[in-house]
Simulated scan of single mutants.
Amino acid sequence: MQPDIHLALHHARSAELRAQAAAHRTDATPRTELRTRLGWTLIEVGLKLATRPRPATAH
């Protein structure tokens, strides 16, 4: 295959993939926000469970 033809096909396919990715990103935006908040909440709960409670100090 000629290098010029191969390069042209590559550019055409990459443009198609970029268009598909852009369409996918706009559809997934609200769900991504929920997944992010859920992920950080799970990390916070995990850290609270993993840390040892401090002994109570008497005043």
Rank of each mutant, 00 (worst) to 15 (best):
M1K: 12
M1Y: 09
M1C: 07
Q2G: 12
Q2K: 10
Q2N: 10
P3R: 10
P3Y: 04
D4T: 10
I5C: 13
H6P: 02
A8P: 05
L9P: 07
A12I: 05
R13W: 03
R13S: 12
R13L: 13
R13K: 14
A15H: 14
A15Q: 04
A15D: 15
L17Q: 09
L17S: 04
R18G: 01
Q20A: 15
Q20C: 03
A21I: 09
A22H: 09
A22N: 07
A23W: 07
A23M: 14
H24D: 01
T26D: 09
D27R: 07
D27Y: 02
T29V: 09
P30Y: 00
R31F: 01
R31N: 01
T32S: 02
T32P: 01
T32Y: 03
R35G: 00
R35Q: 00
T36K: 00
T36M: 01
R37I: 03
R37S: 01
L38H: 05
G39M: 00
G39Y: 04
W40M: 14
W40V: 05
L42S: 04
I43N: 03
E44V: 06
G46R: 12
K48E: 13
K48D: 11
K48W: 12
L49Q: 15
T51C: 10
R52G: 08
P53N: 11
R54N: 08
R54V: 07
P55M: 05
P55E: 04
P55Y: 00
A56T: 10
